[in-house]
């Protein structure tokens, strides 16, 4: 597992049924691109988060494929429809096989 990886997500606490909300997400991850060289001149191998998936009550909201050109501490902003109360699940997949997850519940106002 990459060191010190910490997710951070911003989801409103409530929404009206059927409302569209904006979600912001960030995760602290180096996103080692594979293009940097170490002191000896060798390429430091690529090690990035390559996929980010957001589901709500088991239905997909967005599924992002990431390449090394995504900046360190990947940030994504997108919109989701909230048909009912439930839970957003955020999952990040690392090249090294690690999976980082967090979730946020939302109520219907």
């Amino acid at each position: 597992m990459a060191k010190g990886v910490k997710p951070r997500v911003k989801v409103p606490k409530t929404a009206a049924a059927g409302e569209t909300i904006t979600i912001k997400t960030l995760i602290s991850h180096k996103m080692e691109s594979g293009r940097r060289k170490d002191a000896d001149g060798n390429f430091i191998p690529r090690s990035i988060i390559n996929r980010f998936v957001v589901d709500f009550n088991d239905q997909n909201v967005i599924d992002v494929t990431l390449e090394p050109a995504i900046s360190t501490n990947p940030y994504f902003q997108f919109d989701a429809v909230v048909p009912e109360a439930g839970e957003f699940k955020f999952t990040w997949y690392d090249d090294d096989g690690s999976v980082y997850e967090t979730s946020k519940k939302i109520k219907i106002a």
Partner: peptide
């Protein structure tokens, strides 16, 4: 405070 990328490190500070 969400767009500010520093805050993921502030969260680490809280931990």
């Amino acid at each position: 405070d969400f767009d500010n990328p520093a805050f993921v490190f502030v969260d680490k500070g809280i931990d």
